[in-house]
C-alpha cells in the first residue's frame, strides 16, 4: 500500500508499471486518473490546497478500508497539490485484486472517499478571478451508498 501527496507531476505509465510489478498474485488491476478539466475553455489554472497534517492520515485510512472491504492485494494513491494547468494530471489510484469485480469496486469506493472526505479544496482561476469548486450533491450520495451496501450486507 502506498499513499503519496506531492506537488510535482508524476508519470502515470511508470506508476502503473511499478505497481503491476509489485503485485504478485492478482489477476486484475484497475486504475483511475483525474485530470484538470477546462469545460469553458477559459481556465487559466487550478490551485489545489490541502491540510497537510490530515491528508496523509485520511488517505491511508481510506486505502486501508478499501483493501480490507474488497480484499485487495494492494492499492496506490497519488494526489497532487499546488498550481496545475488545464489537462495536467491531478491524481491517480490503482487497485489490485484476484478478480476484476473487487478491483473495480475497490477503486470506485476509494474515489468516492477521496472526492468527499479527503481534505483537498480546488480553486479554478480564469481571467484573474478565482472560484472555489463546490462539491456535487451526487458525490455525497454516492459515498453514502457504500454505507447502505455494507449495512445491508452485514445486516
Amino acid at each position: 500500500m502506498a499513499v503519496c501527496i506531492q506537488e510535482k507531476p508524476f508519470d502515470v505509465s511508470k506508476e502503473i508499471s511499478n505497481f503491476s510489478t509489485k503485485v504478485g498474485s492478482s489477476g486484475a488491476i484497475v486504475t483511475f486518473t483525474g485530470i484538470v478539466r477546462n469545460d469553458s475553455g477559459a481556465l487559466d489554472h487550478m490551485i489545489i490546497e490541502h491540510y497537510p497534517a490530515m491528508t496523509e492520515i485520511a488517505l491511508q485510512k481510506f486505502t486501508e478500508l478499501a483493501i480490507d472491504r474488497f480484499e485487495l492485494e494492494d492499492a496506490l494513491v497519488i494526489h497532487r497539490y499546488g498550481t496545475l494547468k488545464p489537462r495536467e494530471i491531478i491524481m491517480m489510484i490503482a487497485t489490485a485484486a484476484p478478480h476484476r469485480q473487487d478491483a473495480f469496486a475497490g477503486a470506485q469506493f476509494l474515489m468516492d472517499c477521496l472526492k468527499s472526505r479527503a481534505p483537498f479544496w480546488k480553486k479554478e482561476v480564469s481571467k484573474g478571478l478565482g472560484k472555489w469548486v463546490e462539491p456535487r450533491a451526487k458525490d455525497e450520495v454516492q459515498l453514502g451508498s457504500w454505507r447502505d451496501n455494507f449495512n445491508s450486507r452485514t445486516g
Binding site: Y51, K115, S116, W121
Partner: peptide, 10 residues
C-alpha cells in the same frame, strides 16, 4: 481544530 468547506478531492 480546523474549519473548512466540504472537501473536493480527486
Amino acid at each position: 481544530v480546523a474549519f473548512f468547506p466540504p472537501m473536493t478531492g480527486g
